[in-house]
Structures are given as structure tokens and as C-alpha cells.
């Protein structure tokens, strides 16, 4: 049974695409046949982060408009043979996404026996975001530990429970997971960031993971490698934990406690 997972947030720049790339990669690493779709039509980024931008010939809009076959647009990942990417169009806008077309693409992917379809939602609450979430079974709501991001996530959670196909048809609601990214425990202690407790108090949505703030994310994006591939980094470990928890494993939260910098490091610098 194929599961459709939307990665969404409302606010831009919080790490949706980074999360979509790493999450989909993580599922494929665990042996699940996974497809990640970029719904950010007009501002495609996922193919860059996945390192396949030079292999994009056809995109989601071509398939939605029935111009080509789905298999022609699916890009197979070079490292993982269970991972496929469906890029967004750079030259069109979000109005080109037609609901029937999106549904047909998802049905075809289901027929191809994908285990997971990860939908990378654009920012905002307009057509693109609504299309990305409409057919979702589960949702990863990406939130940064700051007030405006939390407020926007609240709005998106409201839409997940009222505007999706499951909500409209009165089926079992979309299963919501909260993913906090760019978390910096030291800045939380300093009162510059909201703490996990603060965020939970506002949103009350089950937490699936905390991704620490890290420069390796930037480095990974620039290299065109999903952050989960960066061996030995806390970000990769944190994303692996998220995938494990998503698959039902019980993992304690990591990277949520402030690390005391030693006297030596404070004086002589270093990271």
C-alpha cells in the first residue's frame, strides 16, 4: 500500500526541500521504493539538492498535462536504486497544476508499487501547497524555532485538517508529524529561540524529530547531496532518526541539549 507523505510548512526557507530530499533518501536507504516529487513549480530546487538538475528533461507539469509518459519523467537516483525524483517545471507556474492531473500521476505511481511518495510542498498556502497536500496520508510539518514559523505551521496544520481529500471526505485525518529544523540548543538557552516545550505548547502536534542547525546542510546543498548522506554529521544522524521514527521505531531525541563549550575552545576558538 503506497503512502503519500507531504513535507510542508507554510513559511518559506525553513528546510522543506532539504527535508524532502533527506527523508526520501532515508526511506530508500531503508529499502523502500520511494519517489520524491517537487511541487514548487516555477522555483524548482529539489533537483539541485538531489544533484540531478542536469538530468531533468521532462517534469511534473509535462506528466500532469499528459504530454509524456510518467516513466519518461522519473529520474532514477544514481546511488540508490529504489529512489526516484520527479522534478518541477522551471518555466511554468503553479496554476499549471491541475487537480485531476496530479491525482492521475499519484495513481500511476501507486500502480508502479512505490512504497512512499514524498511531496515537497512550495511555501505559502496557495494552489501549489494545496495540491501538494491534497492527497496526503501523512504530513511532515517543518518548523523553525521562531514565532512566525510556528504561527505559519499552525495555519498549515489547520488546512491539513480541513482542506485535504481525507478531511473533505471525512476519512481518517491526515497523520501529522512535527519536525523542528535549525534547532540550536545554545540559542534556546540564551532565550533567542523558542524551546521544544514552547513549540509543543503552541502546536500540540507529535514531534518526529529535531534537526540541529548546522553548516553541513549548506555544504550538502551546494554539493547536490542530500544531507542524510553526509556521514558522521549530526544532521545526517538526526534525519536517520526521523526516518526510523516514521517507520515506527522508538528512538530517543538527540541534539536537543545545549553543549557547554569548554574554556579552552572559548579562548582559542574552533568548532
Amino acid at each position: 500500500m503506497t503512502k503519500i507523505v507531504v513535507v510542508t510548512s507554510g513559511k518559506g526557507g525553513v528546510g522543506k526541500t532539504t527535508t524532502s530530499a533527506s527523508f526520501a533518501t532515508g526511506l530508500a536507504m531503508r529499502g523502500h521504493k520511494t519517489c520524491v516529487i517537487d511541487f514548487d513549480v516555477g522555483l524548482r530546487n529539489l533537483d539541485l539538492i538531489m544533484g540531478v538538475e542536469r538530468r531533468v528533461v521532462y517534469d511534473l507539469i509535462n506528466v500532469v498535462n499528459d504530454e509524456i509518459k510518467l516513466t519518461q519523467a522519473l529520474i532514477k537516483d544514481k546511488q540508490l536504486d529504489k529512489l526516484y525524483i520527479l522534478a518541477a517545471s522551471q518555466t511554468r507556474d503553479k496554476d499549471a497544476l491541475k487537480q485531476e492531473g496530479v491525482e492521475r500521476v499519484l495513481e500511476e505511481l501507486k500502480a508502479m508499487e512505490f512504497d512512499y511518495i514524498v511531496c515537497d510542498s512550495p511555501a505559502g498556502i496557495e494552489t501549489g501547497a494545496l495540491m501538494a497536500m491534497h492527497y496526503a496520508d501523512e504530513a511532515l510539518v517543518v518548523t523553525n524555532p521562531e514565532v512566525s514559523s510556528v504561527r505559519d505551521s499552525d495555519r498549515i496544520l489547520g488546512m491539513l485538517s480541513s482542506k485535504t481529500k481525507r478531511a473533505i471526505e471525512g476519512a481518517e485525518p491526515v497523520k501529522e508529524h512535527l519536525l523542528i529544523t535549525r534547532y540550536n540548543p545554545n540559542r534556546v538557552e540564551g532565550g533567542q529561540m523558542l524551546s521544544l516545550d514552547d513549540i509543543h505548547e503552541i502546536l500540540r502536534t507529535p514531534l518526529i524529530g529535531v534537526i540541529p542547525e548546522s553548516e553541513s546542510v549548506l555544504q550538502a546543498s551546494n554539493q547536490g547531496t542530500p544531507a542524510i548522506h553526509l556521514q558522521g554529521t549530526d544532521v545526517a544522524e538526526a534525519y536517520k532518526d526521523v526516518v526510523a521514527r516514521f517507520l515506527g521505531e522508538d528512538k530517543p531525541m538527540r541534539f536537543t541539549e545545549a553543549v557547554k563549550q569548554s574554556w579552552f575552545k572559548r579562548v582559542f576558538g574552533g568548532k
Binding site: I125, D152, D154, R155, L157, G158, S161, I202, L203
Partner: peptide, 24 residues
């Protein structure tokens, strides 16, 4: 839960909400 952007109107009677009503 009622979240930012959601609105509920109980016409002619009382409204009881058993979950949080968030900002907005």
C-alpha cells in the same frame, strides 16, 4: 484543534470547543 485561519460560528446557540483555539 482550531488553528490560525479557521473560524467556527455557532448560529443561534452555544459553542463548545474541546481542543485548543490557537492565535488567529
Amino acid at each position: 484543534p482550531l488553528r490560525s485561519g479557521q473560524r467556527v460560528y455557532a448560529k443561534g446557540g452555544d459553542l463548545v470547543v474541546l481542543a485548543l483555539v490557537n492565535h488567529g
